[in-house]
């Protein structure tokens, strides 16, 4: 009898306890996730639309973002046998002002996602915004800071169909040309990851998307 009780206490009870605890907490998490899912999805969609609008310098966002997006953005698709690409054409007063693309690259700890916008001829970067990154907080994560991203604004990426080279200089150094980008102190790898992502994706976009 004693042995049986001891077996229940020492072997069975811990297993049953953990199963119950896991079920309760998993249930709580599932309930919480489902009750907040729609709200999170809705917010993410709105935030994405806002990012696309901002990247194309449509900044009068006091109006309804959803309406502005419908009014000014055409969603286009490129497709070939191996690949497909979704991109966003910005239109103001029936005139094409540029194109926005979601781009991805590899950072130090994980992937980096951004939205890059080009002018109507796909030559000059209008704007760059980092939408997702997992870089080191306080170091690589500074790739989202305005001063860093603004360095890419109005950068002519293609001259005579050739992609331009970008070099990195110290954070506090004065750039001698627009193609010298101030790297983030202590985060050279993250800075380089952003630059590599821009170069690789710009080339990819240029090869696939043809504009008049």
């Amino acid at each position: 009898m004693t042995t049986k009780k001891s077996f229940i206490e020492s072997r069975l009870y811990p297993i049953v306890f953990i199963i119950i605890l896991t079920t309760v907490f998993t249930g709580m998490l599932a309930f919480f996730y489902h009750s907040t899912k729609d709200k999170v999805t809705q917010y993410n969609e709105l935030k994405f639309q806002e990012t696309i609008l901002r990247s194309l310098n449509i900044n009068n966002l006091n109006n309804n973002i959803n309406e502005l997006f419908k009014k000014h953005i055409n969603i286009l698709t490129y497709k070939d046998a191996n690949d497909s690409l979704l991109y966003y054409q910005g239109i103001i007063d029936k005139k094409i002002i540029g194109y926005a693309f979601v781009i991805k690259g590899s950072g130090l700890w994980g992937s980096i996602e951004a939205v890059i916008a080009f002018d109507a001829k796909l030559k000059t970067i209008l704007n760059l915004q980092i939408t997702n990154q997992n870089e080191t907080p306080g170091l690589g994560a500074r790739i989202t800071e305005d001063w860093f991203l603004k360095q890419f604004n109005n950068l002519v990426m293609f001259k005579d169909m050739q992609i331009q080279r970008i070099s990195l200089i110290d954070e506090n150094e004065q750039p001698k040309s627009p193609y010298e980008i101030n790297r983030i102190t202590g985060a050279t790898s993250s800075t380089k990851a952003v630059v590599d992502m821009i170069l690789k994706e710009s080339q990819n976009i240029k090869e696939k998307v043809k504009v008049k």
């Binding site: 953990i18 605890l21 998490l29 907040t36 709200k39 999170v40 917010y43 935030k47």
Partner: peptide, 23 residues
């Protein structure tokens, strides 16, 4: 195991709460 499970659950719930109500 129980403590880790409890910590992880609360942290995920705080994360979900922030994502939904304080994005």
């Amino acid at each position: 195991i129980a403590q880790t499970l409890i910590i992880a659950s609360w942290v995920i719930m705080i994360d979900l709460f922030l994502k939904a109500f304080m994005p």
